[in-house]
């Protein structure tokens, strides 16, 4: 049988998917054990026991200086920034994307501006954001916003522009005004695409969050990673990176589930 025709069942697909991850973990463990056999105080490839020990302190013991549980405080601070940045971006993508997509005069006026902003590397704007908004939370949220909003706006606008012309004509023969067309035809059909755009923007949003936290912050997952790097604390960095990956996966699954739940018509015929 040709490889392109091989169908993998559900159980086998979980098994196959787990295989490379387990293999990678095994390779790491063997390498770490090897290094520790040669040098018991090796810091580059910590053993799981070492990671658990280091993380336990951050997870369960209040920081003597601030009195907070550092790991949870970091997580909360980062998620708050990420949530704010994603929220503001999503809202403006919906609003601006809708206007750009439905109304040709608005598209002609603001389309080039959005495109222009979209091609600027956001990190290049970080100094401006620090100068304009200070080193506090605003500049970090703004970096995420400037980083992902233009892409999302363009994606939503392009999706609406690509709605079949027949559909737009049909809506008008049914008496729809520009406003009604926007509200009842374009908006609902933009929603699944918007969620898709948020999912695609999650990766860049994390990049901008970690960058902003690495450069100027006193709390957050990215801040902690860059802080403990000075002490070669791989036993903290690795669990933190794994935690970030886990958070990203959970958010992505939640968005995907929401889209299926709220917009079944956008996800194939069998709903």
């Amino acid at each position: 049988m040709r490889w392109v025709n091989r169908r993998i069942g559900r159980g086998n697909s979980i098994l196959l998917g787990a295989l490379p991850i387990l293999l990678l973990a095994l390779v790491y463990l063997v390498a770490a054990a090897g290094r520790h056999a040669a040098n018991p105080s090796d810091k580059i490839l910590p053993l799981p026991s070492g990671m658990a020990e280091a993380m336990a302190a951050l997870l369960f013991q209040p920081d003597p200086l601030s009195g907070t549980l550092i790991f949870w405080a970091d997580t909360f601070a980062s998620l708050q920034r990420l949530g704010l940045g994603l929220g503001v971006s999503t809202l403006s993508a919906l609003l601006v994307g809708l206007l750009l997509g439905v109304l040709p005069p608005v598209r002609a006026t603001f389309g080039p501006l959005v495109t222009g902003i979209a091609v600027i590397p956001p990190i290049a704007l970080l100094p401006i954001l620090f100068i304009a908004f200070g080193l506090g939370e605003t500049s970090k949220v703004m970096l995420i916003f400037i980083g992902i909003a233009p892409f999302m706006i363009r994606d939503v606008a392009a999706h609406i522009t690509a709605l079949p012309r027949e559909q737009i004509a049909k809506a008008q023969t049914l008496g729809a005004s520009s406003w009604q067309l926007m509200l009842r035809v374009a908006l609902p059909q933009a929603m699944p695409r918007l969620i898709q755009a948020v999912r695609l923007s999650l990766g860049p949003a994390w990049v901008f969050l970690i960058s902003a936290e690495a450069i100027a912050s006193d709390i957050g997952l990215g801040y902690r990673i860059f802080l403990v790097r000075r002490y070669l604390s791989m036993d903290i960095i690795l669990p933190y990176v794994a935690w970030i990956a886990l958070l990203a996966i959970v958010i992505d699954l939640m968005l995907s589930w929401t889209s299926r739940r709220l917009f079944p018509w956008a996800h194939g015929a069998n709903h």
Binding site: Q167, K170, A171, F263, W265
Partner: peptide, 15 residues
Amino acid sequence: PDRGVVFQRYSVFPH
């Protein structure tokens, strides 16, 4: 609204 239309495709709203 004085002229109704039915196209070959895309005449109905999928949502």
